[in-house]
Design a protein around this nucleic acid. Structure first.
Length: 780
DNA sequence: CAGTGAGCGAGCTTCCGCTTGACTT
């Protein structure tokens, strides 16, 4: 009898399942979606109940062809795509393409790839749930409408670039970044004075050790000074000691989002890197599926983990738990991310090792006992005033899951208390404490931090926007479109005051701290800000943080058969299409223009705005008789924050430094940074030189030196053909336009004697047989 | 490699969510 054909989405899964199911089944994968909406005319017939026009995309033709021929040869076809909206739709598309009847074709689902789960699924096949399929079609069509209606509006209304895009997910992601940036810009720091007293006491071994107690924060320097003054000559004694037990619970096992967050905090990985490494681990059978929103662990996994904990740390470390998803939008088609074999504590592949160990530890921890702590709070009275100081300490009584795993928190989530927890020496009530010193330290409030890739993913997940398979690609998209960029920001120095009471005297000090420094954070570009403002002004409902959550409720109704999908789309489309038309008709072209002041010399207006090639400043109007002056913004500057003085500074370039060998020496900043131009040649300026202040005397030797280096590199020039023979770090090579061609070994010695014909022949030769590239390994 | 910034308009772009390789630099 012919084998049955069972189709899943992922090829790695197919292999595992084939082993489990044995002889009667051939298991193949369809590699995700096999059909999609046609691109032309949105792929939807809006006048005919939004009838979708599906096609098999080019890159899926091969898979579809293979599945078709296999389906013909096989016995029964079983559909085992993921159990969620998208998976159900894939099964339906498979029916359509393979000529199967969705009403009778066997459809099975499982949430984990284990023998019992798969066998019980095979014993209880159902058929394709058309309501769920329709919910997916509604989702797909709505996203297509939003994306393909909004993007063209941007093309018409934005003065720059023409591959702009907008969409239900990406546009809200940019909005999140844009709003945080504006919050930070609008933030003004206030300061308070933190009171810190250092006392000494004997520890268990009899050694005298210092510990810190805190008092109420003082709102001003004056109050702080008065408080310290009131403490001069005081005695300090313990009035009360409270000891309270506390527990810490392990976090749930990883989902895509939490894995990305922890890999970012602990390992410094961007979300794409995390996903590439996780994919590698998955494909080599080391971990379960890496795109999941479920925190569920299979029975077998829980057992294996328990066994591993008991043998490695002892029974007292085991505490079995089941985790539930908080997130309502979770579709839970898979397990949590965990190692497939808990006995493997690590993997050989050095690139993947750190990520694997993180997953292993987190999985172990989630089935381990709580950590038990003892929190001690001592109240300390001051004989000369009514204020009280308090010292807190924490002692770990039982480490529990902390033995393997400590979750990292973003610094800004920590409370002041958590930051200062340490050990306290043993104290007793009425004990008199000698004061070593007391300080009032000025502390400034801080704005919320900018988003990292991972914290943006966390935010999107909280809002129910996007899915595990799209978090990383969404970030790539908004970066590629130029709405957002990932970079560092240097901090600025800020003075803060310290008042110090020691030996009956108060000293005033001023120290410096660095504030506002950020590493690898997401910043909105001017383009991102302008586009976000535009979309918010004209398409407020789609930019609403709750838009996705609202339409998800409607998709759910479609999935339950309570609403017709075409009706749902119709209700959305009609008012939306009106907004689109109205916007195209009425909205002005936008360029984010901002007036900065009036040029003192010419009396002309100075503005900052988006130009065709990005953000810039401009003196004068384009309609003036005299052409306006233009200057590009530096990439750390923004239309929104640049001021008049900073703008005028930009107009100091290009600077003519004077004449050298009969030609002007000019300094400017170009596409590739600052440069000196001389005699129609260009020389890059290194970081150590500032184009705004470099002098003629400094520039001349640089030009001489760089020119010499350039000449040294040049072996031969064929001016007319724009071909050069150059000396590079790997030997001589030919350069034609932007392309480089390696010389054959036997010609390298005699490169200077090459004729134009020989050079052309080499170029043709290399073009005909391009050198094989070895894929470069990324540094880890 | 090192410019530009206005307007005309051919021909193009664009979404989200499932999946992996097959391609260069």
């Amino acid at each position: 009898m012919a084998k049955n054909l069972l189709i899943v989405e992922s090829p790695a899964k197919a292999k595992t399942i084939e082993k489990i199911l044995g002889e009667n089944f051939e298991v193949k994968s369809c590699y995700g979606h096999i059909r999609d909406l046609e691109k032309g005319d949105m792929g939807i017939d809006v006048h005919n109940n939004y009838k979708p026009r599906y096609i098999v995309p080019e890159d899926k033709e091969k898979v579809v062809r293979e599945l078709k021929s296999l389906a013909k040869k096989s016995g029964e076809v079983w559909l085992a795509t993921d159990e969620d909206r998208e998976g159900e739709a894939i099964s339906w598309h498979l029916c359509e393409v393979l000529g199967l009847d969705p009403a009778t074709t066997k459809r099975i689902v499982f949430h984990e790839i284990t023998k019992p789960a798969i066998q019980s699924a095979v014993n209880r096949p159902r058929t394709v749930d058309m309501n769920l399929v329709n919910a997916q079609q509604a989702r797909r069509i709505l996203d297509r409408i939003v994306g393909f209606e909004l993007s063209p509006v941007l093309w018409r209304k934005m003065s720059m670039k023409n591959n702009l895009s907008a969409g239900r997910v990406q546009s809200v992601a940019v909005r999140i970044i844009a709003e945080r940036e504006r919050e930070i810009n609008a933030f003004t720091a206030t300061s308070q004075f933190k009171i810190e007293a250092v006392f000494t006491a004997k520890d268990l071994s009899g050694k005298t050790v210092p510990f810190t107690a805190e008092g109420k924060r003082q709102s001003s320097a004056e109050n702080a000074e008065n408080f310290l003054k009131s403490c001069i000559g005081a005695n300090y004694s313990v009035t009360d000691i409270q000891v309270k037990p506390a527990r810490k619970t392990p976090p749930p096992p990883f989902t895509t989002s939490t894995l990305q967050q922890e890999a970012s905090r602990k390992l410094g990985y961007g979300v794409s890197r995390t996903m590439i490494l996780a994919q590698k681990l998955y494909e080599s059978g080391k971990i379960t599926y890496m795109r999941t929103d479920s925190v569920n662990l299979s029975e077998t996994a829980t057992e294996a983990t328990t066994k591993q904990i008991a043998s490695q740390y002892g029974r007292q470390y085991v505490q079995n738990r089941r985790f539930k998803n908080k997130n309502e939008s979770a579709q839970e088609a898979h397990e949590a991310i965990r190692p497939t074999y808990m006995e493997n504590m690590t993997v050989e592949d050095s690139d993947c090792r750190r990520l694997y160990e993180l997953i292993w530890k987190r999985t172990m921890a989630c089935q381990m006992a709580d950590a038990e702590l003892e929190k001690t709070t001592a109240k300390i009275q001051i004989s000369t005033n009514k204020e009280e100081l308090s010292a807190t300490g924490e002692v770990l009584k039982f480490d529990g899951f902390l033995k393997v795993y400590m979750e990292d928190r973003d610094d800004d989530d920590l409370t002041e208390e958590e930051r200062q927890e340490g050990m306290l020496p043993p104290l007793s009530v009425n004990q008199v404490l000698p004061l070593r010193e007391m300080k009032a330290i000025e502390r400034f409030s801080r704005p919320l931090p900018r988003y990292t890739e991972a914290s943006l993913v966390k935010k999107l997940e909280e809002l129910g926007i996007g899915r595990p398979s799209t978090y990383a690609p969404t970030i790539s998209t908004i970066v590629k479109r130029g709405y957002v960029e990932k970079r560092d920001k240097e901090g600025v120095k800020r003075d803060f005051r310290i008042l110090e009471l020691r030996g009956g005297e108060i000293k005033k000090l001023v120290e410096q701290e660095n504030t506002g420094a950020e590493k690898s954070k997401l910043f909105p570009t001017d383009l991102g800000l302008v586009v976000t403002d535009f979309l918010k002004q004209y398409f407020d409902d789609i930019m609403d943080y709750n838009f996705t959550a609202r339409i998800e409720e409607e998709f759910d109704e479609v999935a339950q058969g309570k609403m017709l999908w075409s009706k749902m789309i119709d209700d959305f489309y009609n008012p939306f299409k009106k907004d689109v038309e109205k916007t195209i008709e009425t909205a002005e072209r936008i360029n984010g223009e901002r007036e900065l002041g009036v040029d003192a010399q010419t009396g002309k207006k100075v503005i900052a705005r988006m130009g065709r090639y990005g953000p810039m400043v401009q003196i004068g109007d384009v309609n003036d008789e005299e052409k306006p002056r233009f200057a590009k913004l530096k990439n750390t500057q923004s239309i929104e924050t640049i001021n008049y003085d900073e703008a005028m500074e930009l107009f100091r370039l290009p600077r003519n430094l004077g004449s050298f060998e009969g030609s002007d020496l000019t300094v400017n900043i170009g596409r590739f940074g600052p440069y000196i131009a001389h005699d129609k040649k260009f020389y890059s300026l290194g970081k150590e030189y500032d184009p705004y202040s470099i002098s003629f005397e400094e520039a001349v030797p640089l030009v001489v030196e760089k020119r010499a280096a350039k000449e040294q590199r040049t072996i031969k020039v064929f001016e007319k053909e724009k071909i050069q023979v150059l000396r590079g770090p790997y030997g001589p090579y030919i350069k034609q336009g932007l392309r480089n061609f390696k010389l054959p070994k036997e010609k390298q010695e005699t490169a200077a004697d090459l004729s134009l014909e020989e050079v052309k022949a080499i170029i043709e030769e290399v073009k005909a047989n391009p050198p094989k590239r070895v894929p470069r390994r990324k540094k880890s």
